[in-house]
């Protein structure tokens, strides 16, 4: 990159909520560094570039694409592939893009089950003809189209190759700034790196941990008065801190809520559910397998806690998916 050849940046949102776009703006003064470093060549949320502009770029024209949102439909898959072709570096930005995120909870159901609730059964829906979204629809003047929903939600790296991940729902300003600074200084880590902390949320959490066997029953956070100084998990309240990558400074726990794992697993954690079950078992008062099974049965929605932000990339989903694909 010579001085008069500024870097080119793109930002894109697939199946997302817009929070990741706000996170970009939240980097405050660092946004000026981004502007000084390069030009934005695609950012639908903030600038008026069209898909045909991107199609016209040479391959590799974009230096970095910050891609947020999961892949829920065939159009998002198409744009992910287009941006991959046009970009030197793809960053999966945020939990939806990196792990599947909240939209990934859709993978607990078939597309028809999702449609049925949204377009038929929900109390505010009036749809006597049971109309469903049609990818192609003929109107008197011609044809209009919308994307087709895919069978399952996918993370970005399940569709295209990804160089880096900036986790979080949404990502935190300090890690976005760290990525921009690393790029500016030519010090980006090896491809595949997650740009965040390397330990767990527990390591950053200010709550006191006794490491003694303390869980006698699983409790719901709104039904008990929890001790604000003590580890939530040790008080029997589900917290995903032991399996979750650090970097948020235990934001939720500091605010009085349990961690739900939006930074995704650490490098050492193969499966968040398995890690959390073993974390609970290690500090549970019951000791026999039967007693521990009975304790775990008190967790009312284990899959929804353990894989809140990561179902599409979890071993749980991948093995179910592989099983059904093989049928």
């Amino acid at each position: 990159m010579s001085n008069n050849d500024k870097a080119k940046f793109a930002f894109y949102w697939a199946s997302s909520c817009g929070g990741c776009e706000i996170a970009v703006v939240d980097i405050d003064a660092v946004i000026l560094d981004v502007a000084a470093l390069g030009d934005i060549v695609f950012w639908p949320c903030a600038t008026d570039f069209k898909y045909k502009d991107v199609e016209g770029y040479d391959d590799g024209f974009i230096d970095i694409t910050f891609f947020n949102g999961a892949i829920r439909n065939d159009h998002e898959e198409h744009v992910a592939k287009l941006l991959r072709q046009k970009s030197k570096v793809m960053i999966a930005f945020g939990a939806c893009s990196g792990l599947g995120g909240i939209p990934g909870l859709g993978n607990f159901y078939t597309t028809e089950e999702l449609f049925q609730q949204a377009f038929e059964h929900s109390p505010s829906t009036v749809n006597p003809d049971n109309v469903r979204p049609q990818p192609s629809y003929d109107v008197p003047e011609g044809t209009v189209t919308i994307p087709a929903i895919l069978d399952s939600v996918r993370a970005l790296d399940q569709v295209v190759q990804v160089e880096y991940y900036i986790p979080g729902c949404p990502p935190q300003p300090q890690w976005i700034a760290a990525a921009v600074t690393a790029y500016a200084e030519g010090k980006l880590p090896p491809p595949g790196a997650v740009i965040a902390g390397e330990s767990t949320v527990c390591d950053e959490c200010p709550r006191e941990k006794s490491d003694e066997k303390s869980i006698t029953e699983i409790k719901r956070i709104h039904l008990v008065e929890n001790d604000p100084e003590k580890c939530l998990l040790e008080q029997g309240i589900m917290c995903c801190g032991p399996a979750t990558r650090s970097g948020c400074e235990a934001a939720c726990v500091v605010a009085g809520q349990a961690c739900r794992g939006c930074f995704g697993p650490t490098d050492e954690v193969v499966d968040m559910g398995a890690k959390l079950v073993s974390s609970i078992a290690s500090i549970a008062v019951p000791e026999t397998q039967e007693e521990i099974d009975a304790l775990m049965a008190q967790v009312d929605d284990p899959a929804g806690y353990f894989y809140r932000f990561s179902l599409p990339t979890s071993m749980l989903f991948r093995s179910i998916h592989d099983m059904t694909e093989g049928q």
């Binding site: 995120g101 909240i102 609730q117 189209t145 919308i146």
Partner: peptide, 30 residues
């Protein structure tokens, strides 16, 4: 044409009620 669909109507069902305020903000984070 509004091409978005995620299915919050379905995947909030069966989740503990105290968790729903941690899921639905992701309908729109702006």
């Amino acid at each position: 044409q509004i091409p978005e669909f995620r299915g919050f109507e379905k995947f909030c069902q069966g989740r503990p009620v105290e968790e729903v305020p941690r899921i639905v903000p992701r309908i729109c984070g702006v």
